[in-house]
Computed example of a mutant assay.
Amino acid sequence: MPHIQDAPVVRPITDVDIPAAVETLTRAFADYPYTRHVVAADDHEDRIRRFQELCLTRVGMVYGRVWVADGGRAVAVWAAPDQDPSPAFAEVGPLLGDLAGDRAAAYESAEQAVAPYRPQEPAWFLNTVGVAPEAQGQGLGSAVLVPGIEAAAHAGYPAFLETSSERNVKFYERLGFKATAEILLPDNGPRTWCMRKDPR
């Protein structure tokens, strides 16, 4: 009888998971088109690590929800509308600007280009998601995203995300998201898709 692979165990993040989760996100975004465009090339990986750590620990874990699977080899960070994250963004914004380095202007123009397509109403916003490269293709990405998608739907909110990878668009479509905008970011930036999934 063929061995059925056990479904990944997905659970809310704990402090113990932070190092593994940051490492997963760093590796997942080391060569991602959007972060290549908006984060300086010098010490790129270290900048990505600090960027992801801020998103995880200052935004997601305080003002949203974070789930991990497989001991942190998959992680999904959501900003939820129950709490206003503006204090976090006010604190983290300048730090993100510093991390962007000589790409700060590209980061600003990318934010301005995408802003009009973001939901004006309360929504669950997928801040960041990553799967360790060696763990991809095992269903961890879908598994770690489902709790946030379900929580948004249960609360009656849309779920929203942005991606700069065409391959990701197909992946998110399988999870029920629809592309609402396709934007070519200024300054020779990558094509970026806005996607949302409305509650039933």
Score class of each variant (00 low, 15 high):
75 V>H: 05
147 P>K: 03
200 R>P: 15
196 R>Q: 11
165 S>R: 15
111 E>V: 10
45 E>T: 07
130 G>D: 06
142 S>P: 01
153 A>H: 05
166 E>Q: 15
75 V>T: 05
102 D>I: 04
113 A>W: 10
4 I>R: 01
13 I>V: 12
155 A>T: 14
158 P>V: 13
146 V>S: 07
116 P>E: 03
13 I>A: 05
60 G>A: 15
123 A>T: 15
143 A>R: 10
118 R>K: 03
79 A>P: 00
140 L>E: 12
86 S>C: 01
103 R>I: 02
119 P>E: 09
191 R>L: 14
5 Q>N: 13
30 A>R: 08
42 D>L: 11
52 Q>V: 02
67 W>N: 09
178 K>Y: 01
45 E>K: 07
7 A>L: 10
6 D>L: 14
61 M>I: 11
169 V>F: 11
141 G>Q: 09
180 T>Q: 11
73 R>D: 06
92 V>D: 02
78 W>S: 03
14 T>Q: 08
105 A>R: 04
71 G>Q: 13
74 A>Y: 14
98 D>M: 09
48 I>C: 15
86 S>D: 01
103 R>Q: 08
178 K>Q: 07
21 A>F: 10
143 A>L: 03
101 G>S: 08
79 A>M: 02
14 T>G: 04
64 G>K: 05
65 R>F: 02
178 K>R: 13
24 T>Y: 09
188 N>P: 04
185 L>I: 02
65 R>D: 08
133 P>E: 07
38 V>W: 09
34 Y>P: 09
21 A>T: 12
163 T>Y: 14
100 A>F: 15
44 H>T: 10
79 A>N: 07
100 A>K: 13
168 N>K: 07
160 F>T: 03
192 T>P: 04
35 T>A: 02
42 D>A: 12
116 P>N: 00
181 A>P: 05
192 T>M: 04
1 M>Q: 08
